[in-house]
Amino acid sequence: EVRVRALYDYEGQEHDELSFKAGDELTKMEDEDEQGWCKGRLDNGQVGLYPANYVEAIQ
């Protein structure tokens, strides 16, 4: 698992997508798939998908 930080706001479009604001931190659980989606977990425990290019790894 990798900690990542959102670069942009994202509003989930489907029930299985996460929503977050730029600057939020979350945990990447799985690497992106061929469509460019990652599985992650918000700090509130919600698990879902998000676009991989909306986040950067925290060093």
Rank of each mutant, 00 (worst) to 15 (best):
E1T: 08
E1Y: 03
E1I: 10
V2H: 06
V2G: 12
V2R: 14
V2N: 14
R3V: 04
R3K: 13
R3A: 03
V4L: 07
V4Y: 12
V4I: 06
V4H: 05
V4N: 03
R5W: 03
R5Y: 07
R5T: 12
R5K: 04
R5L: 07
R5S: 04
A6N: 00
A6I: 00
A6D: 02
A6V: 02
L7Q: 06
L7I: 12
L7M: 14
L7T: 12
L7V: 08
L7W: 01
Y8E: 12
Y8I: 11
D9Y: 00
D9W: 00
D9I: 00
D9N: 15
Y10F: 11
Y10Q: 02
Y10M: 04
Y10E: 02
E11L: 11
E11T: 12
E11V: 10
E11W: 05
G12C: 12
G12D: 02
G12N: 10
G12Q: 12
G12I: 01
G12P: 12
G12Y: 01
Q13C: 14
Q13Y: 03
Q13W: 06
Q13T: 04
E14R: 07
E14S: 14
E14A: 11
E14I: 09
E14K: 15
H15S: 10
H15W: 08
H15P: 14
H15V: 09
H15F: 15
H15I: 09
D16T: 13
D16C: 05
D16H: 11
D16A: 09
E17S: 14
E17R: 12
E17A: 10
E17T: 15
L18K: 01
L18H: 01
L18G: 01
S19L: 03
S19M: 03
S19H: 03
S19K: 08
S19I: 05
S19N: 12
F20K: 01
F20S: 01
F20G: 01
F20L: 09
K21P: 01
K21T: 13
A22Q: 07
A22K: 08
A22W: 04
A22P: 03
A22H: 07
A22L: 10
G23F: 05
G23T: 05
G23Y: 05
G23Q: 04
D24P: 01
D24R: 03
D24M: 13
E25C: 06
E25Q: 08
E25N: 10
L26R: 00
L26A: 02
L26Y: 03
L26D: 01
L26K: 02
L26E: 01
L26S: 01
L26N: 01
T27N: 03
T27F: 08
T27W: 09
K28N: 13
K28H: 11
K28R: 10
K28W: 12
K28C: 14
K28Q: 15
K28A: 09
M29V: 11
M29A: 08
M29F: 09
E30V: 12
E30N: 14
E30C: 10
E30S: 11
E30W: 13
E30A: 14
E30D: 09
D31W: 10
D31C: 08
D31T: 09
D31L: 10
D31Q: 12
E32V: 11
E32S: 10
E32P: 04
E32M: 13
D33Y: 07
D33Q: 15
D33N: 12
D33E: 14
D33T: 14
D33S: 13
D33R: 10
D33W: 05
D33C: 11
E34F: 07
E34N: 15
E34T: 06
E34W: 11
E34Q: 08
Q35C: 08
Q35A: 09
Q35L: 12
Q35H: 15
G36C: 05
G36F: 06
G36Y: 07
G36M: 05
G36L: 09
W37F: 13
W37Q: 07
W37V: 09
W37E: 04
W37I: 08
C38M: 07
C38W: 02
C38S: 14
C38G: 09
K39A: 12
K39Y: 10
K39F: 12
K39T: 09
K39I: 09
G40F: 00
G40N: 00
G40D: 01
G40Y: 00
G40K: 01
G40P: 01
R41C: 02
R41L: 05
R41G: 03
R41P: 01
L42K: 09
L42V: 05
L42F: 04
L42Y: 00
D43R: 05
D43Q: 11
D43I: 08
D43N: 14
N44P: 02
N44R: 09
N44I: 01
G45M: 05
G45H: 06
G45T: 02
Q46N: 14
Q46K: 13
Q46V: 11
Q46M: 13
Q46R: 14
V47N: 06
V47K: 04
V47S: 13
V47A: 09
V47R: 08
G48I: 02
G48W: 00
G48N: 01
G48M: 01
G48V: 00
G48A: 02
L49H: 09
L49M: 09
L49T: 14
L49Y: 15
L49E: 05
Y50N: 02
Y50M: 08
Y50L: 11
Y50V: 12
Y50A: 05
Y50H: 00
P51A: 05
P51Y: 05
P51E: 03
P51D: 05
P51R: 11
P51T: 02
A52Y: 03
A52R: 10
A52F: 11
A52K: 15
N53E: 04
N53G: 11
N53Q: 15
N53C: 15
N53A: 05
Y54I: 06
Y54A: 08
Y54E: 03
Y54N: 12
Y54D: 05
Y54K: 11
Y54M: 11
Y54F: 04
Y54C: 09
V55W: 01
V55R: 00
V55K: 00
V55F: 03
V55T: 14
E56Y: 05
E56D: 14
A57V: 04
A57E: 07
A57Y: 15
I58V: 14
I58F: 14
Q59A: 04
Q59F: 00
Q59P: 15
Q59L: 13
Q59D: 04
